[in-house]
């Protein structure tokens, strides 16, 4: 595990892993979409609109899980000062922002026919919107601060401060009276959803997770290569001077 923290070893290992992970992600996503659109039954209350669930719920869950991963990588970067941890956190943000955006937009598209409104400023929706701004703010810091060491530190601090938003999103439906429904899957008495809908949903969860892993590896390799390019440019400039 810690061997992989060496950038050279990470490059060797990830080069072999990348095509398998990408293939598996595509396969799982294809299967999940097929199950969601053709196999899963319509809901007795929501009718066919329930199919939005299969793209909405995994996006929302992953938007939070990915943030937790980014914060963990940021904490490791601050404490251990390992360059790979910085790159992992940086590589994570755009993927998480994508999931968050999807959770908000597909939620809106589901809310209109079911609640009669595209948007309400209730606790769940508002805290998820805050999550999007946290991701965008995190990415903006990397863009704005020129010195990569300073940028990494500032971005990591923002990522860690933003962690307080995660329990707010998760428990918003219990703490406040929201229009958004409470959890149906992560409940102490088991999921309140029929297996015919649970299985397609679980496959979609796996697909989103694999998509995240595959894209994360590509982006981490990109960050390592960019750092290598920077040091080569510096060395060549020095040699010419």
């Amino acid at each position: 595990m810690f061997d992989l923290a060496n950038p050279k070893k990470f490059m060797d290992f990830s080069a072999r892993l990348m095509p398998w992970l990408a293939g598996l992600a595509a396969l799982t996503l294809g299967t999940g979409l097929y199950l969601a659109l053709f196999v899963a039954p319509p809901d007795y209350q929501q009718g066919e609109s329930v199919r939005i669930m299969y793209v909405h719920v995994p996006a929302a869950t992953l938007s939070m899980a990915v943030y937790a991963f980014m914060a963990l990588a940021s904490a490791l970067a601050l404490i251990m000062k390992h360059p790979l941890a910085d790159m992992a956190a940086k590589a994570t943000a755009p993927i998480g922002a994508g999931f968050t955006f999807l959770a908000l937009v597909t939620g809106s598209l589901w809310g209109k026919p079911m609640w009669g409104t595209w948007w309400v400023w209730d606790a769940r929706l508002t805290s998820e919107l805050v999550l999007l701004f946290l991701y965008l703010g995190y990415m903006a810091i990397w863009q704005a601060v020129e010195d990569p060491i300073k940028a990494a530190r500032a971005a990591a601090v923002v990522a860690l401060v933003g962690v307080v938003n995660l329990p707010v999103i998760k428990f918003s439906v219990d703490w406040w009276n929201t229009l958004h429904q409470p959890a149906s899957l992560m409940r102490v008495d088991g999921p309140a959803i029929h297996p015919s809908m649970l299985w397609p949903l679980l496959v979609m969860f796996a697909a989103y997770g694999l998509f995240f892993a595959a894209v994360l590896i590509v982006r981490m390799r990109m960050e390592i290569l960019k750092r290598r390019a920077r040091s080569l440019q510096l060395a060549q400039a020095r040699a010419r001077a």
């Binding site: 009718g47 066919e48 609109s49 199919r51 939005i52 793209v55 937009v105 589901w110 209109k112």
Partner: peptide, 16 residues
């Protein structure tokens, strides 16, 4: 048509 919900279901999948 998605039982009348096509205008919400398909944009969700397309955007995803």
């Amino acid at each position: 048509n998605m039982g009348g919900y096509g205008a919400y279901v398909w944009p969700s999948y397309a955007l995803t």
